[in-house]
């Protein structure tokens, strides 16, 4: 893997990581944006789009309510895209198989994001104490700088999460691809179907609105009907 590839990925990872909480929240951090962006920069927009769509749907139901921090889907999206693009270039296996494998191996490492994110927020607590002290001393100027320093913590947390996802995947992926090459290629179509189905099911399980199930069923059957007839 070239240094420029890693550098580009890291840049995307930090931008998306900051977008998650610290700055803006324009939703660049959602997998549907972060993964295609990475893929596009690494020269394989197709891989990015596929991985982004899978992850987005799978983790759509996770809400950041209260103090609960969801797994870091942004870094998983960026990291898995990098892994898939690199692995495909090396092995020449079909995109679907490589993408499924890198997603399966990369996703569990998203848990690391929760840990690093919490660390960043704890470090930010120190910034608050420093700001309180500064106010006591009558030095209001440093407030803004202290506040902005928090972004550094969030950026570091993103980079660290990406590091865990990529290095974890990097160790496991060649092994998995080597031993499971044939079955993976054989059933990758099936596996490919499992992701969106699980995603849709998790959304359905979590949503509770008046007449929800009826709306879904009618729309599903009607669309099937129209699509089959076409």
């Amino acid at each position: 893997m070239e240094l420029s590839t890693l550098g580009l990925t890291l840049a995307v990872s930090v931008v998306c990581g900051l977008d998650r909480t610290a700055a803006g929240q324009f939703m660049l951090s959602r997998p549907i944006v972060a993964a295609p962006l990475t893929g596009w920069l690494l020269g394989s927009p197709e891989a990015g789009l596929q991985i982004g769509a899978m992850l987005e749907l799978l983790w759509l139901g996770r809400l950041p309510v209260g103090a609960a921090i969801p797994p870091d889907d942004s870094q998983v999206a960026v990291g898995c895209t990098l892994l898939a693009v690199a692995a495909q270039a090396r092995t020449g296996m079909p995109l679907q198989a490589v993408a499924v494998a890198s997603l399966l191996l990369g996703m569990p490492f998203g848990k690391a994001g929760q840990f690093f994110d919490r660390q960043a927020r704890i470090l930010n607590g120190k910034l608050l104490h420093r700001a309180e002290k500064a106010l006591e001393c009558g030095c209001a100027k440093s407030l803004e700088r202290l506040h902005l320093l928090g972004m550094l913590h969030f950026a570091l947390a993103s980079a660290a999460t990406l590091g865990v996802v990529v290095s974890g995947g990097w160790l496991l992926l060649p092994l998995a691809l080597k031993t499971l090459e044939q079955p993976l290629t054989a059933v990758s179509n099936w596996l490919w179907l499992l992701f969106p189905l699980t995603g849709i099911a998790s959304l359905l399980g979590g949503l509770k609105v008046p007449r929800g199930w009826q709306i879904f069923c009618v729309s599903f059957l009607l669309s099937l009907f129209v699509l089959v007839l076409r």
Binding site: A22, R121, L128
Partner: peptide, 10 residues
């Protein structure tokens, strides 16, 4: 837009 840059538990 930078409201949460230093989000902390306290």
């Amino acid at each position: 837009f930078l409201l949460q840059a230093s989000w902390n538990y306290e």
